[in-house]
Design a protein around this nucleic acid. Structure first.
Lengths: 366, 366
DNA sequence: TTGTACGCGTTATCAA
DNA sequence: TTGATAACGCGTACAA
């Protein structure tokens, strides 16, 4: 074997060995006896738009196969602004110790739909863990490796998101997010679902219903209240301030006395919102038990969402949050944005879930 | 070579608006009144090696802050071959429906240690889901976006891994993997841990011990057998072929009759390997119950690993697999490789776990 | 101490 | 149909 002692000509003619040790299009081109541009065209499959001699195509493809050519994702993204990858950024630790609070169900849908759409997934871990660029604006900036990015969690910093959106980087937020205009999001239709729960109760004859909720300004909370009030209105029921019991600490504020006060006032059904912690529902459930009452005999109970899955008791009336479907919908929207299309319908319906905790109101005289 | 006066001056003076709408170093340079190279130096903090006027540095930093400059990860990777990100690739779905079979515990350690080391994490979903480049060699190639990559799962295709390794791309495999030389890996020290379990049994007085294992050539299985046999040897116990019961289907092959046969032959302790499915241990446990026996009175039982966590009965003697620590160790090794250093010790010790399923051998005559 | 020039690997636009 | 050539944004020898 004779390796002529050529001293590395700089630039022009690509030598056989490059920094990465892996063939680039230039090498393929040399082997196929064509130009690098032709290689790019053939490999990108754009042969219909520019039309290249079949024989040439064959040579290029074979050369690529021989050399084991694989495109460099970074270069692809840099040059074409696309590399067929979607980012997912979650602000809480992606792999929390407590699995219940994770975004697992969403991610199942995301992963599945991304594959369906022919995109690969790239997950970025949150800055909460104190990674490389935590704190700085760089933390969010790395998502630019992908063609677009999905954001999970309520606490996505507005400024950074704003920046991405303003730069025209495709972003979809999982969960309603109205204060940032221009930001696309998909979310569960808590309003309709909550209204439906109230309608169900009203249809059974309940005339006085109280909502127990936490003191939180998150859309997920306010949406539920809106839907609840709307449901009361539509059923012709009083929707005064007494209809909503709002407290920062349901566990201590929701005492058996409070509960009995409601019943004495004619309340026959209680509805609790569901949150990350499930505090409102858990407090309600516990207080009812402490007061020696039980649903649906003494009163009806419903939850605006799904109660923590750890209980194996009878199902509670409420609605299901279609987390997997939400993830999939988010991916579809992101793909649309990446393709330069308009974002579609952001709301995903929550199916009503009948349960054993709701019945007709008890007759007044027992 | 002179560039003739073309319209739309190429390169030289970067206009204010670029494709991404986001400032690049050139813009920062213009605002600070320096060259783009200076910006790069200052921003990279290499001011000690080239030494730049403090005043200049101040101007550059301020300009960068004013414009809200953030580096482009793709460009960074392309130019410098580094972007401070570590990849994680798992071949089974990253978010399986069945959480027990996931790599969750590993990932907890990986995420934590990556943050510790100042690296960001990028997760690539497996080709199993049928993503963009499933099947093709491109599936694995996208990991090149990161500085190095961690691979999870037994089924990482050898050819693709070989390619990455040959190209000098830093790769660490989670789990022993010897058939690919040059491939770095970290794994649990099943051999020592299994030996220790046998030593524990021998010290209690057991003289005849049988290992129940599946018919699998995975290192995780063979390592356990090696350690088991080594333990027998060191205790001066017979390590003949009878000492290992190997079957493709423990559930049907491990009958109460087989079990009684062992006891009649003087066997006083049984050891099962732990695998993904836990088939060997589950079969053993069930058969013992069916035979009307119980541990540790009638015989001693141990498992080479941790039994499925769903049981809330007494702890079984065996060893713990330090999954989280394994993830962390893998990250440390990967960081070393990325830095061009040698890979360190690949084995992580599995702590012995005392349990209630092991005791002294029953006295022959009851 | 700072600026010039080039390369990283790909896509895209033109002439030829 | 194909082949130069220019970006894409950043890092870095080397020259000034």
């Amino acid at each position: 074997m004779e390796t002529p002692p050529q001293r590395q000509r700089p630039g022009r003619a690509p030598a056989q060995g490059n920094r990465t040790g892996r063939p680039r299009q230039a090498e393929v081109a040399r082997l196929a006896g064509v130009s690098q541009a032709t290689v790019s065209l053939v490999l990108a499959g754009r042969t219909d738009k520019v039309s290249i001699a079949p024989e040439t195509q064959r040579r290029v493809l074979e050369a690529a196969r021989t050399l084991g050519y694989v495109p460099d994702p970074a270069a692809r993204r840099l040059a074409a602004a696309r590399n067929n990858m979607l980012g997912v950024f979650s602000f809480t630790a992606t792999f929390p110790t407590d699995v219940r609070h994770s975004y697992y169900p969403f991610l199942v849908g995301v992963e599945c739909e991304a594959a369906e759409q022919g995109y690969d997934l790239v997950l970025f871990t949150g800055s909460s863990t104190g990674g490389a660029g935590s704190g700085g604006p760089e933390a969010l900036s790395r998502v630019r490796l992908a063609d677009g990015c999905l954001f999970l969690g309520r606490h996505a910093p507005a400024a950074e998101l704003r920046r991405l959106v303003d730069d025209g980087f495709p972003v979809v937020h999982l969960g309603r997010r109205d204060e940032l205009d221009g930001l696309s999001w998909v979310g569960a239709d808590y309003i309709s679902a909550s209204r439906e729960v109230v309608a169900h109760l009203a249809a059974l004859g309940h005339r006085k219903i109280v909502l127990v909720r936490e003191d939180d300004e998150a859309p997920a909370s306010t949406d539920r209240e809106h839907g609840f009030l709307k449901g009361l209105e539509e059923a012709g029921l009083p929707a005064g301030p007494d209809a909503v019991f709002r407290t920062a600490d349901p566990a201590s504020a929701l005492t058996p006395d409070v509960l009995r006060g409601w019943l004495d006032a004619g309340v026959t059904a209680l509805v609790a919102e569901e949150t990350d912690t499930g505090a409102a529902w858990l407090a309600l459930e516990r207080t009812v038990a402490e007061a020696g009452l039980s649903a649906p005999d003494d009163l009806s109970l419903a939850v605006l969402g799904s109660p923590p899955p750890e209980r194996d008791s009878a199902p509670v009336t409420g609605f299901d949050i279609p987390r997997t479907e939400l993830g999939a919908a988010a991916v579809r929207m992101l793909v649309a944005l990446v393709a330069g299309e308009e974002a579609q319908e952001p709301l995903v319906a929550c199916p009503f879930r009948p349960g054993a905790s709701v019945g007709p109101p008890p007759t007044p005289a027992g």
